[in-house]
Design a protein around this nucleic acid. Structure first.
Length: 800
RNA sequence: GCGGGUAUGGCGGAACUGGCAGACGCGACGGAUUUAGGAUCCGUUGGGCAACCGUGCAGGUUCAAGUCCUGUUACCCGCACCA
């Protein structure tokens, strides 16, 4: 058969769709498999080869699962709210709704052209009323549960996008969307109290099967630390200064304190501070620094001593000075620290610069040169003297603090509460009403969805307020509680909202009465296997685990962790080895590949190009190699002779079935394909194969190159879909050869290879080795001191 | 700075719990076919004339090391003054 991909791909895509063979069944007695891939943001640029790689892994696994008799849910959808669409709409004057619909249509047709076996009856679009109704519903439930709050804070503001960003979206002082510098701005912001779930999110990791580095990144993101809160008495004030420390064992060495420039105590006791002007000047200077500048100047500590107020070290009773410095953050712990220069690098740098006393309390380092952060014997530490370990010293100090009422054990997290609003148009309206009498009131559940009003001009206001603020019919409303005049919240939700629960909607995508039917949730959850990019394993995954866990806590979902298993694919780099980007001009368009070589070649190449989890550069010539492979597969129809088993091929077939079956489970698609290529080379060497053998080959190749395989299957006279036949089994006994070739070494150096029975005894193997002429030459005149036979592997003769 | 990872032919990459390094593919070279090119098919292809040498570098353990141990370098990713 000649391989004419253009003639067959559309044909099979239509047949699959008409027969609906990839639709997941509800209420099914078969075992279920829920494979999830990260749904795309439908950008105007269309699909990228990276998308194809991200979906191809679970595509192969899902296709294999169907053939293994599973009821498979492998869905696709669109995470369609977000700024790029809105910015494009502002530029072109086309409404975001229209832009979104166009982009979704484009993505859909591209995905279908690749032949992915998605269940297209369950597509979700986060911007549809039927979907965002439930996004708002979950938010309302969180509001009821006290997990939503509003606070005035300094926020990361992008003057270009005119939008407030979360810490996660403004890393490195750059806007995550437009990459311009962000500034600090005081604003009223909505927060989700994700920190309340920090421990649950951490504990949940213990029972899920995520890649180790995925788990680690989430743990680091949550950033739990155990330590102590300690209250330091102040001179000239009637309150104490509360600090957080993980090293209360070093308290005898605390020779000063440092508080964040924004610490409220400065303003509170301004009249007792003699150098308040200097402190304010420093504070202002810090506010001007971008995050980038602050981190770039790590080594160079700055600060100002507070004159007029000092602190008392509760361990030594000595008076110690207090400084303000921007190396202490208001957002972590209490915004104040006790500084132990002998045993903390940052405190050491600061003390050296400001000439503050450094007292060694742990032996083991040289504090003349640097801070010593290791373990050792306690000295200069009163009742702690002589203790040898950090753990013991901390326990003793905690006991002391407790007795004296000076402090207690405490836990801190790096993770912050989630800034949950944007002043933009293209997002879910936040369903809250501000009533002058009742305060914040949730929009009643029966009024959801709170529809996004249709606007002509949705550009953001100059002051950074939401475009929705301009729509009076939207803003003005009555309070659901008291019936008085009230105003609606005009901010919208961040893009992360819709993607925090989309996997739940797939189980029942069209339900109008609930986000999903509890029975369906019970059948399908948890997601058995979730694959996506490494860039989403912290933000998106932690956010969605948080939402899911909340829903579990209110009894709305049946399992506590949403994703049983998580893997990640590596990037596809440009042919030049750099990250693909439009500006570098090294972007490969999947359409071009489909047009020139066909979808099957694209699929096979993307999985063959390297380790699935690693980054690998695109190579046009290698694509041709995959085309050649499929050409050779198609041409096998000319070699078919009879039925049954070809003796010379039997073992190769069993070995290949085993290899492909096992490699797919480990996402080692490259070696699975290599094994099939090797099998084909063997078939060509043998010169013929039976129809039964060809059918078996088509079955294991089908998940990779389904169009060609279906076509060949049909050519062989089969009437049903290859995609729904049974995955072949292998016979372990037939994967083992009766005779094997093993290496013979003399003194660890390869000298010959011999062929022996697979079950040969040690004596037989060594005798066979010694019978070989090359071995006899190698050991001639030497004294054999040791003979080793590792069954099936090697003979090594040690001779001196 | 801290945490994690990677390093193998000209290239992408294989190599199970230590057991013939370089599977498979690309590229290259030679040949067949062709008016020619392309495509296809066949053969060769880690280096070295050879003994031998070869998995970033330097040591070590072992009958045997890409794989284990110690040290070291480079690159990639994540976090980053987290008290």
């Amino acid at each position: 058969m000649k391989y004419d991909f253009s003639a067959i791909e559309q044909k099979w895509q239509d047949k699959w769709e008409d027969a609906g063979i990839f639709h997941a069944e509800d209420n099914c007695s078969k075992p279920k498999f829920y494979g999830l891939v990260e749904f795309p943001y439908p950008s105007g640029a269309g699909m990228h080869v990276g998308h194809i790689k991200a979906y191809s892994g679970l595509e192969v696994i899902s296709r294999k699962r169907r053939m293994q008799g599973y009821n498979v849910l492998f869905p696709m959808g669109f995470d369609a709210y977000g700024l790029p669409t809105e910015n494009y709409a502002i530029k072109t004057g086309i409404h975001p709704r229209q832009v979104t619909d166009q982009n979704i249509a484009k993505f859909t047709s591209q995905l279908k052209r690749v032949g992915f076996s998605f269940d297209w009856t369950r597509v979700v679009d986060t911007t549809e009323e039927g979907y965002y109704k439930w996004t708002q519903w979950i938010f309302r439930k969180m509001f009821d549960a006290g997990l939503v709050f509003r606070a005035t804070t300094l926020v990361n503001y992008c003057p270009f996008c005119k939008v407030v960003l979360s810490n996660e979206d403004s890393q490195g002082g750059k806007c995550d969307i437009c990459h311009n510098d962000i500034v600090q701005k005081s604003k009223d912001v909505w927060y989700l109290r994700i920190t309340e779930y920090a421990d649950k999110l951490l504990q949940g990791l213990e029972k899920v099967d995520y890649l180790p580095n995925v788990k680690l990144q989430q743990e680091n993101w949550i950033g739990r630390s155990e330590g102590a809160f300690v209250n330091f008495a102040l001179t000239n004030c009637d309150e104490t200064l509360r600090i957080y420390t993980t090293r209360c064992d070093t308290m005898f060495g605390a020779t000063f304190m440092v508080i964040a420039p924004e610490h409220p105590i400065i303003e509170k006791y301004a009249d007792r501070i003699s150098n308040i002007d200097a402190l304010n000047a420093y504070k202002e200077e810090c506010a001007k620094k971008t995050e980038f500048e602050r981190t770039q100047l790590v080594k160079d500590k700055t600060g100002v001593r507070i004159e007029g107020i000092a602190a008392i070290n509760p361990a030594t009773g000595r008076e110690i000075p207090i400084y303000i410095s921007d190396y202490v953050m208001m957002g972590y712990g209490t915004g104040a620290i006790m500084a132990v220069p002998a045993h903390d690098e940052r405190d050491y740098d600061f003390a050296k610069k400001f000439g503050i006393e450094i007292i060694e309390v742990i032996k083991g380092g040289d504090i003349e040169k640097e801070a010593y952060t290791g373990d050792g014997e306690m000295i200069n530490s009163g009742f702690l003297n002589g203790i040898e370990t950090k753990k013991e010293a901390i326990a003793k100090m905690l006991e002391y603090l407790g007795e004296k009422g000076l402090g207690e054990k405490g836990v801190q997290y790096k993770m912050k509460d989630w800034a949950f609003n944007r002043q933009r148009y293209w997002g879910e309206p936040i369903p809250i009403i501000h009533c002058p009498k009742c305060g914040m009131v949730g929009v009643p559940y029966e009024e959801l969805p709170l529809k996004l009003p249709n606007m002509e001009n949705f550009a953001p206001g100059e002051g950074g307020e939401s475009p929705l603020a301009k729509v009076e019919e939207f803003v003005n409303c009555t309070c659901p509680k008291c019936g008085g005049a009230a105003k609606r919240e005009t901010d919208t939700m961040p893009q992360w909202a819709g993607s925090s629960w989309y996997f739940l909607r797939y189980t029942d995508a069209h339900n109008e009465n609930a986000f999903a039917d509890p029975e369906k949730l019970k059948y399908w959850l948890p997601v058995d296997w979730y694959n996506g990019g490494m860039e989403h394993v912290t933000r998106h995954m932690i956010y969605s685990r948080f939402w899911h866990r909340f829903l579990y806590d209110i009894g709305a979902v049946p399992v506590d962790e949403p994703y049983a298993k998580r893997t990640a694919q590596g990037l596809i780099l440009g042919p030049d080895g750099d990250k693909m980007s439009k500006s570098k001009g090294n972007v490969v368009d999947p359409n071009d590949v489909v047009n020139e070589y066909g979808a099957d070649v694209l699929r096979v190449y993307i999985l063959f190009m390297g380790d699935y989890a690693s980054a690998a550069p695109w190579n046009d010539s290698s694509v041709k190699g995959c085309k050649r492979f499929l050409d050779r597969v198609a041409a096998l129809t000319d070699l078919v002779k009879g039925t049954g088993v070809t003796a010379k091929l039997e073992s190769s077939f069993h070995k290949t079935i085993k290899k492909v079956s096992e490699d797919i489970e480990e996402m080692k698609f490259n070696t699975a394909i290599a094994a099939m290529m090797a099998l084909i080379n063997t078939i060509y060497e043998v010169g013929s194969l039976t129809a039964d053998e060809l059918k078996t080959l088509l079955k294991i190749l089908c998940p990779f190159a389904p169009h060609l395989c279906e076509e060949m299957w049909e050519t062989l006279g089969e009437k049903n879909f290859l995609s729904m036949t049974e995955w072949p089994a292998w016979d372990e006994a037939k994967t083992v050869d009766a005779e094997i070739e093993i290496a013979v070494q003399v003194c660890g150096k390869l000298r010959a290879t011999i062929t022996i029975a697979a079950d040969a005894s040690q004596a037989d193997a060594i005798a066979a080795a010694r019978a070989d002429e090359r071995i006899q030459n190698a050991i001639a005149g030497k004294n054999v001191v040791k003979e080793i036979y590792i069954p099936g592997k090697i003979v090594n003769i040690v001779a001196k």
